[in-house]
Design a protein around this nucleic acid. Structure first.
Lengths: 342, 342
DNA sequence: TTGTAGGCGTTATCAC
DNA sequence: GTGATAACGCCTACAA
């Protein structure tokens, strides 16, 4: 015969189905002695609950909210598409997800949105937002209301979030560094580092990892101070032009943040893009094309499909109080070259 | 109210549950007219079947067989471990998998095992085996008996397998090539290519991809003919020593096949391992250590966890006749360096 | 503190 | 051809 069921447990323990259920779900109103008997039966028979049958009976619905940066980020757009796709697929069964767009550079706006989330109409929240003290407090409130919270892409380590879905930025920076160094071969010269803002925690960590590798392994290359674009194309053009004026031996560019469209445009207008080693983050329509055209040499990527599915699985597991399957939830640091473009 | 159920369909179409079920599962014994009415109702209400409830009622069990090479391959061992892990986890719910070890270099033995599979006690088969005409016929037989078959890691394109779970070997070879070329910088010299046997389809394809990139982009590097180790450590030592004797400017080694333990040992005894650019396939305990020690520069990998889960999901989908979620089943060509080791 | 009975959405076995 | 009716494994009133 197949797996043992609650019926088997009930028979084995000499109690009724309802009592078994109460014990399995740790509900009160059962004598300690009876609890013991049931648990013994569970042990003996090796019972494991059929989650799907349980969800069916429970009419379980998972209502999640995804708090994502608004604005025209290709990465976020790609992420949203992957979310829609996953919700429509098998993995999205019984899951509904609302997307809350927040102006992520405005911590107060972020907090306003987080505080406005209707905790009683939700079963979990995924947040992709820079870490600020205000955000930390808002997350604490959500958790107080009993909601599982996962941090997406950018971690919120001191917020008490239940889980982080994303890659280690420091390692990602190291990976970018080693590609930069090896692709530049033994040449000496300077490398430009660009991001939208060094207030973003992941930019800081990526920079740290990048610098570490460059100092360790490629001391003949000097890494210039981080340039901040502030998500402004005009400013991007200006600082890039200026950087090319003041540095004679530029070997490469490390783009740590979003905004690759504007950066690539600025680099194109210097006329030197083809000679540079360019390493960027996140595979989006624009970085994909730039890879294909040989403008970008390597992209460090976190697979958005994987991010989405991992967030959904983890949130569901937290709701059910079940274990997560670590191996499946580890997001890889993908290295994408033209030849292994998915 | 929530999603429409079979009850809603029955009411809407003015028929009974049983009839709805017959139509949904394409069973005979329903008037064309009635079929139509039900299908209209399905359309109108946007019904989509609850797979889990269905499986519950059906008492569905998925009994799969995995036909894997025997012998001491670290890759296969890693794969088996991942399989066990997945079976124990959420994704393995209702799935049982038996592993059949075959001496994969012996086509007749492979076929004997395939033919001995009890088709009536199985719901699907995954096969990791080199392609031979005999294997092709055996797969055809399995399919005749109604079993879904997926090819694992090494494709069986002309066998009528339902699906291939793995990476494109040609692209993988190109990826290895570009890493080799760029990591070797502008130096000219020779590159050694090693595999266990050029009878393996993936070795041939990898070689093709590798050669293409080298010829296109790195013409100053000459790629030597493939050396075959025949899975024999002694032979490996000999051919490597010989290769080092006859080539004065060796820049690197591309290891296309399994057997990295023996190959690394042979390379170590030349005393020149540290200076070479080494690119290998598959992340296993030994390649992992070699990466960490700087002996291997890059590993081209297919994530075994992903392979296993994909095979399980695809087989299940084929059993259910349901769609597969392409995006999730595309196995990535991972590039693993020391810095992004998972 | 415990048990009974019914229901979740689907399928399967009977009759009619 | 079609329709009741009872499963599947679990949960939850409500009753005892």
């Amino acid at each position: 015969m197949g797996r043992p069921t609650v019926h088997d447990i009930a028979r084995e323990a000499g109690v009724s189905l309802a009592t078994v259920d109460r014990v399995l779900n740790a509900r009160p109103g059962v004598r300690a002695q009876t609890v013991e008997r049931v648990q013994n039966a569970v042990q003996r028979l090796g019972y494991v609950r059929d989650t799907y049958a349980a969800n069916l009976a429970r009419q379980r619905e998972y209502r999640f909210a995804f708090v994502l940066p608004d604005g025209a980020s290709q990465f976020v757009e790609t992420f949203k598409a992957a979310l829609q796709e996953a919700i429509g697929a098998q993995i999205g069964e019984r899951i509904s997800a609302r997307i809350e767009a927040v102006p992520s550079h405005d911590p107060h706006a972020v907090v306003r949105v987080l505080n406005a989330l209707p905790a009683d109409k939700l079963d979990g929240v995924a947040i992709m937002t820079p870490e600020t003290p205000q955000v930390r407090d808002a997350v604490a409130r959500l958790k107080d209301e009993g909601l599982p919270v996962v941090a997406l892409v950018s971690d919120l380590p001191s917020s008490g979030r239940d889980h982080f879905v994303g890659i280690n930025s420091f390692q990602a920076g190291r990976t970018a560094g080693v590609l930069m160094g090896r692709f530049a071969c033994a040449k000496s010269g300077q490398v430009l580092v660009v991001t939208n803002s060094m207030h973003a925690r992941d930019s800081v960590e990526r920079r740290l990892g990048f610098d570490e590798v460059m100092a360790e392994t490629f001391p003949h290359i000097s890494v210039l101070p981080s340039l901040e674009t502030h998500d402004d194309p005009d400013r991007t053009d200006r600082i890039i032009a200026e950087a090319f004026r003041s540095n004679s031996d530029l070997l490469g560019v490390y783009s740590m943040g979003p905004g690759n469209v504007a950066l690539l445009n600025a680099l194109r207008s210097t006329g030197r893009l083809q000679d540079l080693v360019v390493v960027a983050h996140e595979l989006t329509p624009s970085t994909r094309i730039a890879l294909q055209d040989g403008e970008i040499d390597a992209v460090i990527n976190q697979n958005v499909g994987h991010l989405v599915r991992s967030a959904l699985r983890v949130l569901r597991a937290k709701c059910d109080g079940s274990e997560i399957f670590e191996a499946q939830e580890r997001i890889r640091i993908d290295i994408v070259l033209r030849e292994n473009l998915p």
